[in-house]
């Protein structure tokens, strides 16, 4: 019998582990936090103590400054926190991303996936399945319509568009941590070895990836001096989605607006954003991978943190699986 309440509870601050006295990815400042990965809705500044992978700690320092927490601890191997033994395992989501496994001698084991992906990603370590009694999974793309195509096929479509419209710039919206570097690596693997222009907001995180041994190649700032708009014809420019609403986008010649996200699978979403070339590239598990992961790990309980839990609950019901929605608040479902 698993005493799940000793292992994990939902509190206003987020997911809490009473036996260990810490939160996982809390949405408000807490005394002790374990962080799965560096995206802003999971990794916030102002905690008393943070435990995370070395890369996630580095990324938080880049984003929030070195004083983002009072004390920090690098996750490595099995570590005892209170009455719980914790370990971090690659989640395949972004650089440094991890699932957090908890083990308690009477309460059993739980794995909190954070955000995760099982599709190949040259910009981070692959997902590692970790057996557990309780699987706490994300459900961002938990609808059977979400079946992400092979990312390299999406890059092929992008390159075909560049060939078809050599006079236009291709402007790709991609989140600064993870997605942008993945696109760059995919382009490099597809043979695009020319310069790739990046918005200033991507610079430091790209530099960090390079320092971690991810060869992003020739990156140049997407700045422009007056009257040289045409220099960007036929070029690839990456920027955070927010920049597309800013005057920044005005500097490029008749740009093809592209957006790299799992949400691009749905046409209405792409049209709403004014996207001309949607690229379905996601850092989250799609429906087949999500359901496959649950089947493979075969936990006795499946808890659903955030996303489209209704469909996943229905699937668990059809499979005769014990599942519950946690309805955690504060995570941005749109981020991908």
């Amino acid at each position: 019998m698993i005493d799940s309440a000793a292992l994990l509870q939902v509190r206003a601050e987020g997911l809490f582990c009473p036996a260990g006295g810490f939160y996982i990815d809390p949405v408000r400042p807490v005394e002790k936090a374990l962080i799965t990965h560096g995206h802003a809705d999971h990794a916030r500044a102002g905690h008393g103590a943070v435990m995370a992978t070395a890369q996630t700690l580095d990324i938080m320092a880049i984003r929030y400054g070195n004083d983002f927490t009072a004390s920090r601890q690098v996750a490595s191997g099995q570590q005892q926190v209170g009455d719980v033994c914790v370990s971090f395992h690659p989640a395949g989501h972004v650089l440094g991303s991890a699932q957090i496994a908890l083990s308690h001698k009477t309460a059993g084991t739980a794995v909190v996936t954070g955000d995760y992906s099982r599709s190949p990603n040259p910009a981070c370590a692959p997902f590692e399945p970790v057996p557990c009694d309780i699987l706490v999974t994300e459900a961002t793309f938990a609808l059977p319509v979400f079946r992400h195509p092979d990312a390299s096929d999406e890059i092929t479509r992008l390159l075909a568009s560049i060939a078809a419209f050599p006079e236009r710039a291709h402007l790709i919206g991609a989140y600064a941590l993870g997605k942008a570097q993945r696109i760059i690596m995919l382009l490099r693997h597809a043979g695009w070895d020319g310069p790739i222009y990046i918005h200033g907001a991507l610079q430091r995180l790209c530099d960090y990836h390079i320092s971690q041994g991810i060869p992003l190649g020739d990156l140049r700032p997407a700045t422009i001096s007056r009257g040289q708009k045409a220099d960007f014809a036929g070029q690839i420019i990456l920027g955070p989605p927010s920049a597309f609403a800013a005057t920044w986008a005005q500097r490029f010649p008749d740009p093809v607006i592209c957006f790299a996200s799992g949400w691009m699978q749905v046409r209405a979403r792409a049209r709403q954003r004014g996207v001309e070339l949607p690229l379905i590239i996601s850092d989250h598990v799609d429906w087949p991978d999500l359901t496959r992961t649950i089947s493979e790990l075969d936990p006795s309980q499946t808890w659903v943190t955030h996303g489209r839990e209704d469909a996943l609950m229905r699937w668990c019901e059809l499979q005769g699986r014990d599942a519950r929605p946690l309805r955690l608040l504060g995570y941005e479902e749109e981020q991908d």
Binding site: L143, P144, V145, F146, R147, Q265, V266, R267, A268, P288, R308, D310, A311, R314, W315, L318
Partner: peptide, 25 residues
């Protein structure tokens, strides 16, 4: 499953598109 289909159709908003996406691979 009809519930899964209904949830998906709600989200996608277009019948042909929902079927195109949800149809077994």
């Amino acid at each position: 499953d009809s519930q899964l289909f209904a949830l998906s159709y709600d989200f996608v908003g277009d019948l042909a598109e929902t079927i195109a996406l949800i149809w077994p691979e």
